[in-house]
Amino acid sequence: MCYDLSFFSNIKLVSDYLNTKEPPFQFEPTYHKVAQSFSKWPVVVNDGKELSIELFEWGVIADYMNTAEKIKEYRTSMANARSEKLLDDKRSVWHKLRNQRCLVPTTGFFEHKDTGGKKKTPYFIKTTDGPVFFIAGLYNYSPLPNPETGEVIGTFTVITREANPLMASIHNGGPNSHRMPMLLSKEHLFKWLDPNLTDEGIRNILSFEFPDSRMEAWPVNTIRTRKADDASVIQRIDNTLF
Score class of each variant (00 low, 15 high):
91 R>S: 13
97 L>E: 09
94 W>G: 01
113 K>W: 03
100 Q>N: 14
106 T>P: 11
109 F>K: 11
76 T>Q: 04
144 L>F: 06
179 R>I: 04
168 A>W: 01
64 Y>P: 03
146 N>K: 13
108 G>P: 08
180 M>L: 05
58 W>K: 09
87 L>I: 14
98 R>W: 05
104 V>S: 12
56 F>N: 12
156 F>D: 04
88 D>V: 00
138 L>P: 01
150 G>T: 02
115 T>Q: 13
128 T>D: 06
122 P>K: 05
95 H>E: 03
153 I>E: 14
71 I>Q: 13
162 E>M: 10
179 R>H: 09
125 I>Y: 12
102 C>K: 00
107 T>H: 08
156 F>N: 02
123 Y>N: 06
112 H>L: 08
72 K>T: 11
62 A>R: 02
154 G>C: 09
103 L>Y: 06
183 L>C: 06
96 K>L: 14
79 A>C: 14
151 E>N: 10
109 F>P: 11
89 D>Q: 04
163 A>W: 02
71 I>E: 03
78 M>V: 02
85 K>D: 15
90 K>E: 11
100 Q>K: 15
69 E>Y: 03
159 I>H: 02
104 V>E: 12
165 P>I: 01
130 G>E: 07
161 R>L: 06
158 V>E: 10
55 L>T: 02
50 E>G: 01
116 G>Y: 11
165 P>N: 05
165 P>M: 07
93 V>S: 07
137 G>A: 09
92 S>H: 04
166 L>I: 12
83 S>D: 15
54 E>M: 13
60 V>M: 07
89 D>L: 04
98 R>Q: 05
119 K>D: 11
157 T>G: 11
93 V>I: 12
64 Y>E: 03
145 P>V: 09
106 T>A: 14
143 P>V: 11
112 H>W: 15
169 S>N: 04
131 P>E: 15
140 N>H: 13
95 H>W: 09
165 P>S: 13
177 S>D: 06
108 G>K: 12
156 F>W: 01
128 T>E: 06
86 L>Q: 09
166 L>T: 01
121 T>Y: 10
167 M>L: 15
122 P>Y: 08
136 A>Q: 03
159 I>P: 00
122 P>A: 10
118 K>T: 10
134 F>N: 07
155 T>K: 03
170 I>E: 09
124 F>T: 02
87 L>M: 03
126 K>E: 15
89 D>P: 02
130 G>M: 06
183 L>A: 04
88 D>M: 09
183 L>W: 04
143 P>H: 06
63 D>Q: 15
53 I>Q: 04
141 Y>T: 05
179 R>G: 12
135 I>L: 15
65 M>W: 00
159 I>G: 07
74 Y>W: 09
116 G>T: 08
